[in-house]
Amino acid sequence: MKKNLLFPIALIISFFLVESCAKNNEADPSITNVVVTNPDFQMLEDAAVRGDVAVQLSSKNPSDPQGSYTVFAPTNAAFARLGLNSALDLIALQPAFLRSTLLYHVFSGTLPGSALTPGSMPASALGPTRRIIRRADNSLYVNGSKILRADVPAANGLIHPIDKVLLATGVDVLNSALALEEGLVFVRPELTFLVEAVAYCNLQSALAGSPGSPPLTVFAPTDQAFRELGVALNVPLNQPRDIRNLPVATVRAVLLNHVIAGGAQGGRFTSELPENSTVASAGGGPLVFGSFNNGALTVKGPGNGASAANLVIPDIQCTNGVVHVIDRVLLP
């Protein structure tokens, strides 16, 4: 019972420490102070406390001559898109992954809105770069996240609010899926059916990539998506190894239908994928994209009929491409 109380107690203590800092520095608030005093950033505040970056962002940056950080700051609505609506929901994420995710939102130094030019790739405190994208309607994105406003000032830098949480793994597509399957991202394992299917078809090297190989855009069905497929096909898919009851050629064809390798659409975020268009998958079959709406679009294969897949966790940056977790298996 005591163990379950540790997070709430730590949250309360950290909140009062940060709140005290805000009250003592009201005339010149730090990035942390701005987050604490803005109700639109309540979830970011909770995440910063649990991820142990709140204190860091309340101080000057020792690695920058001006002492500045720049933070792409997800709003409450951005966290809600991942099913994270309260401080307790953050327990679903492994602490190490939460911290690395927060660091991926941070730039060491001053990165004003005027420097967010299309095609530029600002570094992150985590290491991987982000990509700045401008859509035809002139809206500006960092990866697949819309920049809602630029240059919110703070004593130790700038804040750019965004509408989706930025996600990066720091490893290739294969190892990113393995991290989810092993419970290193969410406490509860995910993509276990997909990992089993990839091993069954011996496609590990294709998803791991190699130097010079084309970037990938991968649509990764959830475990529930595979279970629902089993029900639809009247083939029980209750556990990952049940995948091996299907012909390997069939499973391979299905998996290749979830990958775009190279070309204009390989390694693309939602903000870059062509809405209302058809693109060839690695298996040769067409993937049909729906309209770009609220930072996402649907995708379906030829065998899905009118039932398109939704991107439930889009825009996961990997070292050799981008993964979009979807809620339906794309059938060739």
Rank of each mutant, 00 (worst) to 15 (best):
N33L: 00
A80S: 10
E272G: 04
V323E: 03
M121A: 09
L90S: 07
R241A: 15
P314E: 08
H258A: 05
E19M: 06
N245C: 09
N304S: 06
L180I: 07
S277K: 14
R81E: 03
G266D: 04
G127H: 02
F16D: 01
G303Q: 08
K300T: 04
V322Y: 05
V106K: 04
R81G: 09
Q239D: 15
V198I: 15
A47F: 12
L273S: 10
Y141D: 05
Q224A: 15
A10T: 01
R149T: 00
L116G: 00
D315Y: 09
L191A: 14
I260D: 00
G170I: 12
G321E: 01
R252P: 08
L178E: 11
S114W: 02
R99V: 11
T169Q: 07
A47E: 13
V35C: 05
V231M: 15
V142I: 12
G283D: 12
L331W: 13
E182Y: 11
K23P: 05
A80F: 07
D242S: 13
A96I: 14
A73I: 02
A199E: 15
V55H: 05
I9G: 00
T217C: 06
H258Q: 11
V165M: 11
L5V: 05
G212M: 06
Q317V: 01
S30V: 00
P118C: 04
T75G: 01
R135V: 01
P128Q: 05
L140N: 00
A78P: 01
K146D: 03
N24E: 07
H105S: 03
S307K: 12
N310Q: 12
S114Y: 00
P314H: 08
A48T: 09
G284T: 06
N294H: 10
I313D: 02
G283S: 10
A10W: 00
D151N: 00
A27H: 03
T169W: 09
I13L: 01
P286Y: 10
L116A: 01
I260Q: 04
G183M: 09
A123I: 06
R328W: 08
G127M: 02
P240A: 11
T319L: 06
Q239V: 15
S205I: 07
I147D: 01
A306H: 10
D172Y: 14
L216S: 10
E45K: 13
I243H: 08
I91P: 05
R328S: 13
T129C: 04
A92I: 14
N320D: 11
A253P: 08
L287R: 11
K2L: 14
E275T: 14
S307I: 10
A87M: 11
R188A: 15
D89M: 11
V248N: 10
P247K: 07
L237M: 13
P215V: 04
I9K: 03
L273C: 13
Q224N: 15
K3N: 10
R244S: 14
P214A: 08
N33M: 04
H258P: 02
R50M: 15
V251Y: 13
F186Y: 13
A253T: 11
S108L: 05
R130M: 03
A80P: 03
L207K: 05
A115I: 05
A309K: 02
R328D: 12
